[in-house]
């Protein structure tokens, strides 16, 4: 059982990265030790009722970094907080470390990674996958689909760690025009391991491709959440025909197990 905390943290900064995207840094000396790739926090935000789920984007020393897009009231109000404290619940959900790799039994954080990782990110799905990538100790390829050029995030960061980046935009403003899943297909080999996070339509397509080509992979799911800890059954999805709570049993599931 992963340790989680529900407490106030000091905001170090909360600034616009570009467009509608903001980066929030909080000081969390003890909590950082319990944060692993794939996990998220529920953030308390003024003037909205429920907390909002946001993934861990990075950990640097004592700092947790979040990267989020302003979508509606919650994220808008969040973007307006400039200093002071913020209450967070987490880290929540499973992490890539919790999942046992088959056929290779090695843990994902092992020094010698002998699989070739492919990250497939849609929109803000890239946020949590970056935290995975920097912990993988191996390079791979990222297939990154967004609506428009101005939605592209983290490109420099992925370049810095030596990843190959393939981009698609729906409006054609950069890279391939269309969906990332259109071009993914032909490049995949079955020694790849897929890590995917993005909208449901994308996950569905990727899981089809993975099944067809018999490729291993993991999908991180997003659902509307009320509690984030498994109490309300609000975020339940079907996995291998069983009900699973995205917030507690996931967010990461084996790609072949999800029924989308």
């Amino acid at each position: 059982m992963n340790k989680k905390f529900d407490k106030n943290y000091k905001i170090i900064s909360n600034v616009k990265v570009h467009g509608n995207y903001f980066e929030l840094k909080i000081k969390a000396p003890i909590t950082v030790k319990h944060c692993h790739p794939g996990q998220f926090f529920m953030l308390s935000i003024p003037n909205v009722f429920l907390r909002r789920p946001i993934s861990i984007h990075n950990i640097k020393k004592n700092t947790i970094i979040f990267l989020y897009k302003v979508i509606g009231d919650g994220t808008r109000n969040l973007s307006k907080i400039k200093s002071g404290k913020i209450q967070l619940l987490g880290p929540l959900g499973n992490s890539y470390y919790d999942l046992n790799f088959v056929p290779s039994s090695q843990k994902i954080n092992n020094k010698s990674c002998n699989f070739s990782p492919i990250i497939i990110a849609g929109g803000t799905g890239i946020v949590s996958l970056y935290f995975l990538a920097i912990n993988l100790n191996t390079r791979g390829t990222i297939y990154y689909g967004v609506y428009s050029e101005k939605d592209l995030l983290c490109l420099e960061k992925f370049k810095k760690i030596g990843w190959k980046i393939i981009i698609s935009t729906e409006d054609g403003s950069q890279g391939y025009k269309g969906y990332i899943t259109d071009i993914l297909h032909k490049d995949l080999r079955n020694d790849n391991t897929l890590f995917v996070c993005g909208p449901a339509s994308m996950l569905k397509k990727v899981s089809q491709i993975a099944k067809e080509k018999n490729i291993n992979g993991f999908a991180s799911l997003e659902e509307k959440m009320a509690c984030g800890i498994g109490n309300c059954q609000g975020c339940v999805v079907k996995v291998k025909g069983q009900n699973k709570r995205v917030c507690r049993d996931g967010t990461i599931f084996r790609i072949e197990d999800i029924d989308l």
């Binding site: 509307k224 339940v236 009900n243």
Partner: peptide
């Protein structure tokens, strides 16, 4: 099994 998604709305 309960109902399909979405199950929650603020």
């Amino acid at each position: 099994f309960g109902n399909p998604q979405p199950r929650i709305v603020e």
